[in-house]
Design a protein around this nucleic acid. Sequence first.
RNA 1: GCCUCUGUGGCGGAAUUGGUAGACGCGCUGGACUCAAAAUCCAGUGGUAGAAAUACCGUGCCGGUUCGAUUCCGGCCAGAGGCACCA
Length: 800
Amino acid sequence: MNYNFNDIEKKWQKIWEEKKAFEAKNGGDKEKYYILVEFPYPSGAGLHVGHVRSYTALDAIARLKRAQGYNVLFPIGWDAFGAPAEAYAIKNHVYPADMVSKCIDTFKGQIKSLGLSFDWSREINTTDPNYYKWTQWQFLQFYKAGLAYKAEKEINWCNNCKTGLSNEDAAGGVCERCGNPTTKKLKNQWMLKMSEYADSLIEGLQDTEFLDKIKTAQINWIGKSIGAEVNFKLDGLDEDLTVFTTRADTLFGVTAMVISPEHKLIEKYKDKIKNIDEIVEYQELAHKKSEIERTDATREKTGVKIEGLKAINPVNDRVIDIWVSDYVLASYGTGAIMMVPAHDERDYAFARKFGIEIIPVISGGNIEEEAYTGDGVHINSEFLDGLGKEEAIAKMIEFLEKNKAGQKKVNYRLQDWVFSRQRFWGEPIPMVYCEKCGWEPVREEDLPVILPDVPSYEPTDNGESPLSTVEEWVNTTCPKCGGHAVRETDTMPNWAGSSWYWIRYMDANCEESIASKEALDYWGQVDLYNGGMEHATRHLLYARFWNQFLYDQGLLSVREPFKKRVAHGMILGENNEKMSKSKGNVVNPDDMVNSYGADALRTYEMFIGDYTKDASWSENGLKSCKKFLDRIYRLGEKLNESNEYSKELEAEIHKTIKKVTEDILTMNFNTAVSALMILLNNYDKQGEISRKDYRTLIQLLNPIAPHVTEEINEMYNLGEALNESAWPNWDAEKLIDDTYEIGVQVNGKLRASILVNTEDGEEEIKEKAFANENIKKYIDGMEIVKVIAIPKRIVSIVIK
RNA sequence: GCCUCUGUGGCGGAAUUGGUAGACGCGCUGGACUCAAAAUCCAGUGGUAGAAAUACCGUGCCGGUUCGAUUCCGGCCAGAGGCACCA
């Protein structure tokens, strides 16, 4: 018996589309459930089998939840600003939007061929002016709340992409777009005050069910550290040099100060610095280095002593030297440190190299050999002598605050979000500059600021956005005074559109606001959000920040956007390596759908292994899943007329309903498929099966293989369409078998397996165990020390 | 260096309030059907010994707790990911 799976799949996809079967309603009696997959970047490469894995997984949950009576929102859209479309435009001299729309068509066709139950009425596209109008509008809200500001700042710069980058986009000192090392560049940038939300972003994690590793990654990225700021007076000047330290207790061990090459003190007192030429030379050298070179901890320390400036230690009035070194980062703390070589490895290395005094203030270790960073009793520290680390820190901060020489201070690694990009393919930042009024926001009624076409999409060498060349677009009038003004020509980062897209899905076609209040209140929060681990400290942090801001503005009813975040593992090539064109191990989902069908592909990707772990592709594995579906299809030949469960199968069926339901909802898809295979094996052993046996099996399989199951259901007229039917229930009483096998151990080794009755107590089980021939052999003539019998688990006999 | 996590057959992987390790599938071997092949079906399949019953070994390594440890504890080793000259 053969069937044409391609025809069947197309048939059901058409039926679902015509019936608008998966469109969610904003409101109603049903409980809501919002399932989100990260919207894809519609690149020219087309859909990846990795997309199929996560989309199918969440689709299975969506279908099951609908059958359980939930109002499920499961939307999809396109994150289409950013590098790939722009790179294509530069190469081929075409407007990126044309390319994007072609790619979207391809993706859409591929996604539809998989039978995913997305609500297409809510499809969005970040490059659509109707969408980015609201991205721009939200930027204006940040601006009005004082959280968007323009500042001249040392930022990460990619020389290859010719654009500034946020810290998140330059993690590890490499450009996230092209992978080249980044350098620092002083630039006037729009910034979002994400640092103001540092604590809130840590605390908010408590209200989420993110994986621990995601929470940890975010907490590490935010990098909260509690310490103190200490003010060192500059000798003979009315000026403080302020440092941040987590070890205020070591202040008596300070033997020098170190400032970063970018520190503003250098410029301010350049006339007083006798060796200014040498310092400037060092600054220039540091500037040329890439971020990776500069932050390489194994590199030998370099630095220059500033001649002409000295600092005074507030605890003992000692006059000490000030050095410049690039091991001190401008971006962290105050860009300056107090040097305690006895108790800090980096300071120790620096002091050793330049012959700076080393004063131990904590006993322990051997300062002849290395800095002692451990805890111990304080020495050489006057009022701290005899105290341990924590007490000494508290006492020192008390002293500093009393003497106005410093205070307790919390510092974060998290910086404000650099929000300007000098690239063409992004949302224009809706700000204009007027000579008279300064920076003014575009009036909300004038949004969207449409991205114009440009003669050249290439980034420019002068660090300006390509938009700056479009004079008729750049020149405009000031919204405040009506005079001449110029538009901001930088664009937003490609994370902007994805920082609120789940909100837009709630009411995708709303024209009055980002989404109606009713829709926002109804859907509230995403219940389940799936995406890759690579977004743990970028998209996920930006999105949470953005949501918290909108909540604080009274626009949203929930502070945290995502209740639960899960991450899927990668699908590797058949050779166990990451799929890539150069390795020639890329599997095209279209080919798989054509050869084996969407249902087989979906089933295989659910069966391939632990959903959260990487798995290697195997076409044989896919074939076996096709075989599994064929066997399910052929079961129809065994159908009898009964509408009750077959007695021989009933217990097994109830067990399987329970297992499959729980496994899909807890994302153990591989064992759900396995349970269905076991059930099928049982069906196959029967001479005939009932209509109800069959119907339940295909219902359970339907979330994973929706087409063939609907087809079988219709062909044998087993009941109403599966996507409109209620999920089957299991009966807890039917789960219990009359008898079961239990293992018998003698001195911890398994010696037999015996059949006992379910209602047998300890005594009956023991009796049966002792009656077993093999057990008799072992215990014959031995002293029985102890017998443990636990029904449903084990019998354990200890002999001597 | 610090923080997370992982380690089970030839392969993907099951099984943890501690209770018969290897479910399910791939691959492989043998068989049935066929002129033959494909497809399908049946049987076997952790290692060693044995015709078999069965015995010994076996969940990265070394110890510990326990009647019993893949699971809990201590110490290693290997791999993956995150952070890292962050004061």
